[in-house]
Amino acid sequence: MSEATFFLLTFILYILAAVCYFVFLFSKKEGSAKAGFTLAFLGLLLHTLALILRTVESGHAPFTNMYESLSFLAWSSVLAYLIIEWKYRVRRAGAYFLLIVIAFMALASSPLMPKEAAPLVPALQSYWLWLHVSVTLIGEAFFAVAFITSIMYLRAEAREKRGRMSGTGPSAEKLDSISYLAVAVGFPLFTLGGLVFGMAWAYKAWGSYWSWDPKEVWSLITWFVFALYLHTRIVMGWKGRRSAVIAIIGFLAAMFTYFGVNYLLSSLHSYV
């Protein structure tokens, strides 16, 4: 079977997992959430195979164009989510989170994204490609988890304010602390992959570690937003609504760094 087949099967499994999680939202039966988790996990395994096949077929890291990197981002998002769910039991987040994953997968398979494995341009021929892109995207995947749990927090908080208990769903407080945990895992990874490895590679390839290129500035902006999140929270004791809003802005900034800069601003960094 080819990489495309594995990719398609993965996509189907993620959709089925999302369906199970949505059934869980309404039926509140643990069983369907567990089915969702299992399907997402199977999807992750097939996805891993797809990425390995892609690497073998193309002979280089599986994130050198938009299709590949979106697929890798979807993979790391599922990984990040499954880790968080397994450790902290936030099953209701599954339905919403898989929507993001499906969006990544759908974008990756859209006809706008060229899928052929092109040979690597000279600037990308470096082991830094592996380090820089994979660690950054895994960090961003944890920001995606924080994004979803923060949105859920805002809804849960509004519900609790109106005096209704959140039913079987996690309490607002729990969502808030899970958002923080996701940021706490993602932030060091994003710093390492996006900024530190990015600077190291830029120095190796272009001769300067920092050139104020829009992609660089936007990853710095993303980093500053999450630094703001951490300082307001740890030092000034902000929690809840304000923290959630900053985490949401942070993820949107990360996504703008990833997509927006390529399509809207002119950048040195025009590979992916």
Binding site: W212, P214, L220, I221, F224, V225, A227, L228, H231, L265
Partner: peptide, 12 residues
């Protein structure tokens, strides 16, 4: 941080 974020966005 907030001022630097806003300024940097404008700069891009």
């Amino acid at each position: 941080l907030i001022i630097i974020i806003i300024a940097s966005v404008l700069g891009t």
